[in-house]
Design a protein around this nucleic acid. Structure first.
Lengths: 318, 318
DNA sequence: CCATCGGAAGGGCAAATGCTCAACCGCCAA
DNA sequence: TTGGCGGTTGAGCATTTGCCCTTCCGATGG
């Protein structure tokens, strides 16, 4: 091998390294490098490009954001997402809402800046509500905000964390609350509800939404559906036996991310949740307890994007 | 500081980091970055430039350039060193700080990766400071950083380029500043100072340091000791007559690398500099003006390793 | 309240860069 | 010798980038 020291290959790589050093570390232009190494400008360019393609130069970003962006790139890559945002975790409060809310707000703001009409559909949840609070006031009468699910509990009272109304107020856009409750009593009642013109119109809007932002619910004893009284402990247990690990806008799915064909889902009145959606469906979710639910949603391609925390992203990539 | 999380300053740096990542790691063009971050092309350019100027992006060249390797091998061979690193020189700026700093940072990083406790002692100087800036953030509470000399001028003000504190901050390790000034007024004062418990403890740590990184000072009119006001011109001349050619952590030595037995050295309060040290003492130094000082340090085996520039290495081997 | 000022944003342009393509060189085999 | 072929080179051109200069915005102080 020592004979290789002077083969063209080695010298070329050496020159590439030298060119890369002069370019990236010493800050020369390719013209200067060409003169210093005694080659043409084009050759210098090729050497610099080679230093890059042969991975001789290693670039590292020394900022907390750098790590997050590495994680986000790994997430999009591994799960075939169109978008991933990872908010830095505070080591002392690893799944603080604020980071995710800010990241998601920035994302939403970019969409809302469009002069074209955009239909934005929203689920429910603390994350979405916090996101809206982080959004600056804007004037966007050209857009439309629509809710993907009802905000009425079974007793007729409103659920907390209604993000749709707040968002519409904040950006001055027309909005469509979801005209049905979360759950129908039975499939027959559901069919009757969905036949109403207002319902059909809203569901249609949801299907055509350019951007949908949703939360992800876990299915343990802290499940939002349980805490909010939509599911009794017995029902929870039954769903668990059927393989339920998570829910998005009340649609319950299993570990492969398949919407379960079960009695509960047959009563869900929320807008249908497309599998492998054609338009952006972005979930906001983080936390140890939601991990299985997030994993399943990613596996089943129920979402095209994810906004999460650094800590959660790391665990998703384990 | 946590309240600062949302100040414009922080957000701006974050954005700069994002832009830098997208540009240098993900290979986006500035146009794409502008679209993704929702800003104008010019702003994206400014963010990328900021990522560079704020030293958020670190570039490292991962290739042993043949010529530098040869020089390094020749240096270890000729001077009996345990380690030599030679950074490529830009012919027009032969002794750029950056190359040496990066090489030394890589070296230090390898040591810091050890899970075992390591004691690292540092001298002062631009090179050391630049090295610390090149080091990535790490978490190494197992190590200890200790300064080999004071950072107080005679008037009590702090010298610039304090590397110890920066290093300790950056790697999250406990650190020991040097509790004495650079010079005592006279030998009697020195003895009194060195009797203090804190001083004895720190000096002992320096003696046990697994790795010591130091600069080398020349003894001409640009001498650090003179520029920083520790040596008057008259004193400089006297030391020159006594044969002084260089200094390490303020200990002045002659052309054979022998620590001079002179009035000045009897006032130096820095940690003692062992001749033919048993543990690694590595100097960072380059430049025409430092050549005699480097040669002498090598001849007298005051150091076990050297990180220098290509141009300086060549001259040392002449 | 208005005038002033500093910093950030955007337009425009010149320099730097990346890429394609045709020409060329050396090598091998017919 | 000659033709073909892989690979390298340099010219030309489109894109990208860096920078200057003007404009705009918000803060500050009279």
């Amino acid at each position: 091998m020592s004979a290789d020291r002077f083969t063209p290959e080695t010298t070329r790589l050496d020159d590439a390294a030298r060119a890369g050093w002069l370019y990236y570390v010493a800050g020369n232009t390719q013209d200067q490098i060409a003169r210093k190494l005694g080659v043409s400008r084009q050759s210098a360019q090729r050497l610099v490009a080679m230093a890059l393609s042969e991975r001789l130069v290693k670039v590292r970003l020394d900022h907390p954001i750098g790590r997050c962006m590495d994680l986000a790139a790994a997430l999009t890559d591994r799960y075939g997402l169109t978008l991933a945002e990872v908010a830095p975790s505070d080591p002392e409060a690893p799944d603080l809402l604020a980071g995710i809310a800010i990241a998601a707000a920035a994302l939403l703001e970019r969409v809302l800046k469009s002069p074209e009409r955009r239909i934005v559909s929203l689920g429910t949840g603390r994350n979405l509500r916090a996101m809206v609070e982080q959004l600056p006031r804007m004037t966007c009468p050209q857009h439309v905000v629509v809710s993907r699910l009802g905000n009425m509990m079974q007793d007729g009272s409103a659920t907390p964390y209604n993000a749709t109304i707040r968002l519409a107020e904040r950006i001055g856009a027309p909005h469509f609350p979801y005209p049905l409750p979360v759950l129908a009593r039975d499939p027959a009642e559901l069919a009757a509800m969905q036949a109403q013109q207002a319902a059909r119109n809203t569901i249609d809007l949801c299907a055509r939404a350019d951007l949908s932002l949703v939360g992800i619910g876990q299915m343990d004893m802290t499940a939002p559906l349980h805490v909010d009284g939509f599911l009794s402990e017995a029902e929870m247990a039954e769903l668990a036996r059927a393989g339920a690990v998570g829910e998005i806008t009340s649609w319950v799915y299993d570990a492969q991310g398949r919407i379960l064909d079960c009695a509960f889902n047959r009563r869900v009145a929320s807008a249908p949740l497309p599998c492998r959606p054609a338009r952006d469906v972005i979930a906001l979710a983080s936390g140890q307890s939601k991990l299985p639910a997030i994993r399943a949603a990613l596996a089943g391609r129920l979402i095209t994007g994810l906004v999460t925390s650094e800590a959660t992203a790391e665990r998703l990539l384990d």
